[in-house]
Design a protein around this nucleic acid. Structure first.
Ligand code: FES
Ligand code: FES
Lengths: 150, 150
DNA sequence: TTAAATAAAGACAAAAATATCCTTTAATAT
DNA sequence: ATATTAAAGGATATTTTTGTCTTTATTTAA
């Protein structure tokens, strides 16, 4: 026993978010990146990343193409795809709806001891994720203001 | 592949918080609870809970006594022990200091794409945990306003 | 002094998350 | 057509987290 972790999102989810941002940051016209390119850009394990990209394709956040010049592209409008959607696709919605202390159901009627305090945080987080769209975030990366690795 | 989880804290951490609140909620005078009583009160697996209580004893958030009428008690003043201390003891401080997207270090100089947005959430969360003391939270439980299980 | 109660400690087991590897399928270019 | 490229899918491996079991040590009470 001895844990030195527990962060907000799973690794799978972090890779997913980073991958989506990377693909969204690709220059117009040439916006299709292969697995190798993506996992290199976000410094993630290639094979594991492949599984995550597959999931994102299944939920139609990404489109994919096989063969030479194949790869992954954002499916839909980067302006309207939110980080919340990516998180929900990979980690599910427990982070948006679950009880902080593990009660089966988070509710006002049968609240856990930190429900009221925690609810505010959760709403803050949810609001942030829902209003963060890929386009805007990818611009920060393109402008050199933020980074996808290290 | 197919995850339907990822919550804010690890299970170990949730059990720890609940256990601390339960022990803090014990009536004056008779404030020493055994493992069985605690894990029943918070609906947690007994043996696993034992390990967590051991950790809490090691970091001196709890004191323990063996033998008949032994058990666990809060060590120190419940008014000044915060949920943040319990979380840090079990989950470490990644939740307070780590990068949301997995960069090795969260910093202003080399921010990840969601750093600025996420920082606000993290400060909100940190502030909440730092200002939530055991005494106050345990009172809610004693008043029947909040619940430790189901 | 002995028996009972209870926490501590260590070994082990099961489940979940993370990660890798190999084969198959589809697309492209020659 | 064929060879090459790249994603999809499936099986497997590793690591971490969660959980259990057994033994030991300590305290209390009879
Ligand atoms: S009941 Fe625990 S967070 Fe709502
Ligand atoms: S660098 Fe990612 S949260 Fe600060």
């Amino acid at each position: 026993m001895s844990c030195i972790k527990e962060e907000m999102f799973s690794k799978a989810c972090k890779y997913a978010i980073n991958a989506m941002i990377y693909v969204a940051s690709l220059p117009e016209g040439m916006q299709r990146a292969g697995l190798k390119e993506i996992s290199k850009a976000i410094d993630s394990p290639e094979a594991f990343t492949a599984k995550i990209l597959q999931q994102l394709v299944r939920v139609e956040l990404l489109s994919s193409a096989k063969g030479p010049h194949g790869g992954f592209a954002i499916q839909g409008d980067p302006n309207t795809i939110t980080i919340a959607q990516v998180v929900a696709a990979i980690d599910g919605d427990m982070i948006f709806t679950g009880c902080a202390l593990g009660l089966k159901k988070c509710s006002e009627d049968h609240p856990c001891p930190v429900h009221h305090k925690f609810k505010a945080i959760r709403e803050h987080l949810t609001g942030m994720l829902l209003t963060s769209n890929l386009k805007e975030i990818a611009e920060g990366v393109n402008d050199g203001k933020s980074f996808l690795k290290y």
